[in-house]
Nucleic acid binder design. Structure first.
Length: 658
RNA sequence: GCCGGUGUAGCUCAGUUGGUUAGAGCACGCGGCUCAUAUCCGCGUUGUCCGGGGUUCAAGUCCCUGCACCGGCACCA
């Protein structure tokens, strides 16, 4: 039997999954379910990436052992995936022994090949910046920011000879155009390869959270190197060779478009070095924006997938992801659009279709539809064409086209009912056979549409299949399940509306829980301990965990020294778009502050104004100017800033603001 | 300033390797039906496919160029 091994990126556990993460897992799940439906033995791997410094820091902040913290996050992640019906076969964590063994093994192999060498990461290091500087960035041998001479620093590190693999990678890309998709991503990486590759550092010294470098336990494996290996360790590399032989190479890595480089350059080079076959395909999906804006964790503008699923249901959300966003491109999510798609595709079309077929079968035939005998109508042909389009689209990962194809069959069934007018046939007993046939054929078309949609909306498809009758629908394989079949009697079952029409932003009978709650980084970790596992649900999902208290203490606030200040002088910073250099009178002293408000204020308009300054902020260099403080302004992402101002007359400079 | 992305119907967007009168959904108008979740079906309206050059028998699609918007970074302390 053929096999299919599919992976998604593993996730950092420093915040809960947001809508974009959910998008990746759901679309991968659709692919996995499709292959299973086709009768292919499928292995679908997901997991968490835990060896990150952020994770370590976050755990310590919460007073938790890092592993304990990761345990909590794992249950959070699993709960979300369970709710969204993501059917992974295995879930790997990079802290697991099987993974550590695998990473060690691969590094040993790479070392044996001679592709690992100890070296010194060296370069100009600016102490003020706490960062290495490129030679080309220095101005007259000095740090362009701090105007100090940087030190030449050497830090011991392990390097991977990535540069050795440029040619091999290029020819692989040329020989296998399908290796990286979609095409845009492939072109980007081709250009990158053409411009050459440099060796990369694969270890970090002076850290304890990670996998120790073999033969060099004072340093740990750099996190991304560690993370990539999960795809191999997940199927037994270095721990279970039989299993590894059975599943490797992976057929498909589904990753975000930002990390295609890791997966299509670094990862294959590592595998080549270790003497392991390359994965067959890497697919870089796009972003899901929210109302046209990129979701940002730091700005708290992410959408909670559980909240979205709760509004109209898990399957409607899954359908939205698949049908409304061309796979491989960026897409947009908005609640009003979600509602529109819910009403149009599910309530009005598929749901209403199921309802009208079931009602007529019940009313005219007591639900029992005999085997058909007459000349079939146009639906069998329509179904066959749709199935062809569907598989063709699925096989090239055009998930949105596949979903659209399935809905074309729904449309055809609705049209067929209008054309044949079963209610008219029912008026004349002479048409009895004809009526039975029309209903049977329509039910069969709906059944096939449900089979096609089952990878996308698994729970709903099961319900539709049950309602449409037919022989043991779920047990059948794809080819058989999509073959037209009205040759035996079936029983169509009546039931409540699958998707009642939504209005005013929610389903009838649900309570308003308020607008979408923005997730923030602070709530993601702190509520980890309190939240309850969410039960699986086909339709309205469980309540998201309550947000943790993001408030700071009064003492923390009082640490910020806010002062009234008067602008004495202001000038635009040369060659800068946003920065203005401002001299302020703080009452007791003069300060130079650089503020990023040039897009909203002209320097000359600032002179004489009273502003609020954060007086005890550490200095920073911006465009070579040292800024001693920060001027408070309201700022919208992408919008223009607005300075905080006082009623007239303003308080004198130096007055504390609190 | 650098890099990347986008620009197609009122709105949200599709348009495969360049090929007949440029599409879908929503919205809007008219008509039909009554089995159905005020649902369904049919017909219809609106397009300088951002502008300008070019390649071609043929350009929404390829090349050059300009403009607009968006994002990231550089400079948001």
């Amino acid at each position: 039997m053929s096999r299919f091994y599919l992976t998604t990126a593993i996730d950092y556990v420093n915040s809960r999954p947001h809508l974009g993460t959910a998008y990746e897992k759901v679309t991968a799940d659709v692919i996995a379910r499709y292959h299973r439906l086709r009768g292919v033995e499928t292995h679908f791997l997901m997991g968490n990436d835990e060896h990150s410094q952020n994770v370590h820091r976050r755990a310590l902040e919460l007073g938790l052992d890092p592993i304990a913290y990761c345990d909590r996050m794992e249950s959070e992640f699993r709960a979300v995936w369970r709710t969204l019906d993501v059917s992974f076969d295995d879930f790997i964590r990079t802290t697991e022994p099987r993974h550590r063994a695998s990473v060690t093994r691969m590094l040993e192999r790479i070392a044996e090949r001679g592709d690992l060498y100890e070296g010194f990461y060296e370069g100009w290091y600016c102490v003020s910046c706490e960062a290495f500087k490129q030679e080309k960035d220095l101005v007259e041998g000095k740090c362009p920011v701090h105007h100090v001479e940087p030190k030449w620093l050497r830090e011991k590190n392990h390097f991977f000879r990535l540069s050795n693999y440029r040619d091999a990678l290029l020819s692989h890309f040329e020989a296998h155009p399908e290796f990286l998709q979609p095409e845009v991503r492939r072109n980007e990486i081709m250009r990158l390869l053409e411009s050459g590759l440099e060796d990369i550092s694969v270890s970090r010294s002076g850290q304890a959270w990670g996998i120790p470098m073999p033969q060099s336990p004072e340093s740990v494996v750099y996190v991304w190197f560690d993370a990539l290996i999960n795809y191999a360790s997940g199927v037994g590399y270095g721990t279970d060779e039989t299993r590894f032989e059975a599943w490797w190479p992976a057929d498909l890595h589904i990753v975000g478009k930002d990390i295609t480089r890791f997966h299509s350059v670094f990862w294959p080079a590592m595998l080549m070095s270790a003497g392991v076959a390359l994965p067959r395909q890497v697919f870089g999906h796009g972003w899901v924006h929210h109302r046209g804006e990129r979701m940002s964790k730091t700005l708290g503008t992410t959408v909670d997938p559980l909240e979205a699923a709760e509004r109209f249901g898990v399957d409607p959300l899954r359908l939205y992801f698949v049908k409304e966003i061309p796979y491989g491109q960026d897409g947009d999510f908005a609640y009003d659009r979600f509602e529109e798609r819910y009403n149009v595709d599910l309530a009005n079309n598929l749901g209403n279709l199921v309802s009208r077929v079931a009602t007529m079968a019940d009313k005219y035939r007591g639900g029992r539809l005999p085997a058909t005998a007459g000349e079939p109508g146009r639906l069998p042909g329509a179904a066959e064409a749709v199935v062809g389009r569907y598989t063709e689209a699925m096989d090239r990962l055009a998930l949105h086209e596949a979903a659209a194809a399935a809905f074309a069959l729904v449309d055809a069934a609705n049209e067929y009912i209008t054309e044949t007018e079963p209610w008219a046939l029912a008026r004349d007993p002479a048409n009895a056979d004809r009526l039975s046939q029309v209903l049977h054929e329509t039910a069969e078309a709906v059944r096939i549409a449900a089979v096609l949609l089952s990878p996308v909306v698994p729970a709903s498809a099961d319900t539709v299949l049950a309602r449409m009758g037919g022989p043991s629908a779920t047990a059948r394989r794809f080819d058989e399940a999509t073959t037209w079949s009205t040759a035996s009697e079936r029983t169509v079952v009546l039931g409540p509306a699958l998707w009642p029409r939504a209005e005013g932003g929610r389903l009838p009978g649900t309570h308003d829980r308020g607008e979408a709650r923005a997730m923030t980084d602070s709530d993601s970790g702190k509520d980890a301990g309190e939240s309850q596992p969410v039960p699986p649900a086909a339709a309205p999902a469980a309540t998201p965990a309550p947000a943790a208290d993001p408030r700071i203490t009064f003492d923390a606030f009082m640490e910020i020294d806010l002062r009234v200040a008067t602008v004495l002088a202001a000038e635009k910073v040369e060659k800068s778009r946003k920065l203005i250099k401002i001299e302020v009178d703080l009452g007791t002293e003069r300060r130079t502050v650089v503020a990023g408000i040039a897009e909203a204020y002209a320097p000359e308009d600032l002179v004489g104004r009273t502003v609020v300054v954060v007086a005890n902020l550490k200095p920073a260099k911006l465009m070579g100017i040292e800024s001693n403080g920060m001027i408070l302004a309201a700022s919208l992402e992408g919008g223009i800033p607005a300075l905080v101002r006082f009623d007239d007359p303003p308080p004198p400079p130096g007055t504390r603001v609190r």
